[in-house]
Amino acid sequence: MAISIQRQTGRLLAGRAMQAVTVAGLVGVLSFALVRMLPGDMALRIAASRYGPDLLSGTAADDVRAELGLDQPLALQLADWLGRLVRFDLGNSLVSGQPVIDELAVQLGYSLWLAGFALALSVAMAVPIGLIAGLSAGRWPDRAALTGAILLRALPAFVTGLCLIILFSVWLGWLPPAGFGTWRELTLPALTLALGLAALSSRVVRDSMVAVAASPYFAFARVKGLPERTVVMRHGLRNGAIPVVSLLGLQLIYLVEGVVVVESLFAYPGIGHALVHAIFARDVPMIQGTALVMGLVFVAVNMLVDLACAALDPRQAAR
């Protein structure tokens, strides 16, 4: 039995590895198409990307043209482009001239801080609210939590963020509306994301709690004569956590999308902000780099969620 569960875990990891390859392929092909679509001389552009605009000269562009074989068939060029991607050779930013990988290393760190803080905040809000709503299912605290969740889910993250800025920065003057450095700048963007996450997860916590409390196995654990502590901790919490942890996979999508928006709104120098700016500037190496890293992080965290689910729920491990 143990062997088959291990095999299933292996299959699960293989699936996520395939997803990572797909992400890289998709991002690479789209970026390649993007670079071909840009107006102007491509060789010049790539030379600028490699050596930086300051060192750029006509000969450098010719060298690039010859080296990359830009006069060669499209398929060969694409293969070369993807080959560089596989080696994580992402080139230099067309705007700053710095290697994309160096910029990404810094920005990704900032974004992970933001996302991690947002996730922690959302758990801190969603679990107590969900539990209170579950305990009072159908009565006013539950309805109030439901109404709040429905309203929050109908707001785009940028509007939630705007309302928070107006409240905490303009009226109360407690927190800065933008910037970066200390926890004070981190709080509003993280809270914006956390509210969006908690709008959904508080309901899942609530539903899960109601379902477990009504389940025959929960009732039977009591009837067996187990102390209430064991009933709740061993039979209640673990089963109740399964849908909540599974939801994390879905919440990651929201988190990735939210990071892009919220970083733009709060001028937070993370990877989402960089992606939006790269799109404005048509800085293809940066577009490719940011999208690739965001996609790969998305896959990696999803894999962790898979493993957590499999550890919590033997049925998923064996599927």
Partner: peptide
């Protein structure tokens, strides 16, 4: 599966870049 590999908004952003 390929389309779901990336979060939806990221895909839209990449296309919007064109």
């Amino acid at each position: 599966d390929m389309i779901l590999a990336l979060p939806g908004l990221l895909l839209v952003l990449l296309l919007a870049a064109f």
